[in-house]
Design a protein around this nucleic acid. Structure first.
Length: 171
DNA sequence: CGGGTGATTGTTACA
DNA sequence: TGTAACAATCACCCG
């Protein structure tokens, strides 16, 4: 399903695709790291867990999510993910920690939730096979907690602030 | 038709 | 301590 949408502009935009011709399946920093399995996210996990907590987006990703919208908005012609990544990364480094602060705050929040999910996930794994029913019960509990926490999380909006203005960098 | 890949950095978890 | 791998996104390509 999702692939169908890609056929739109198709090759025309291909120009916007990665300028580097290495679009091939080459690895990106393979040489940098020794074995470097950094890419290949194929099997991911041998077993698929029912609700395995995915790692929360780092501050960079939080910023990137928003950046992606803006980037695409100003660069509707560019649809390459790598382009946004590069641009985002560049800008990210250009930003001062103060500006990254809000993103970091959000990331911190996600991390907290992630820890929570891990707790639930951990519980699930601990479940004994005989407690199938029990496991369901636990799930309910977790769900309940999850909802409650989610609500709380939503409320907080951050604004921790940052006074350390000394360093900063910038241009 | 579907999955895999490209790129960015951060963060997390294991040895 | 350090590495290794994964987190999102989206268009495009191979089998």
């Amino acid at each position: 399903m999702k692939t169908t949408k890609g056929k739109g502009p198709a090759r025309s935009s291909r120009e916007a695709l990665k300028p580097a011709d290495d679009r091939m399946v080459g690895k990106r920093k393979a040489a940098a790291r020794p074995e470097s399995k950094r890419k290949v996210k194929k099997d991911k996990q041998a077993k698929k867990d029912p609700n395995k907590p995915k790692r929360p987006p780092s501050a960079f990703f939080v910023f990137l999510e928003e950046f992606r919208k803006t980037f695409k908005k100003e660069n509707p012609n560019i649809k390459a993910v790598s382009a946004v990544g590069k641009a985002g990364g560049e800008k990210w480094k250009s930003m001062s920690q103060a500006e990254k602060a809000p993103y970091e705050a959000k990331a911190a929040k996600k991390k907290t939730e992630y820890e929570k999910l891990m707790n639930a996930y951990n519980k699930k794994q601990s479940v004994d096979e005989d407690g199938d029913e029990e496991s369901e019960r636990s799930k309910s509990e977790v769900n309940d907690e999850d909802e409650a926490s989610a609500e709380e999380a939503q409320e907080d909006e951050e604004e921790e602030e940052e006074d350390d203005d000394d360093d900063d960098d910038e241009d």
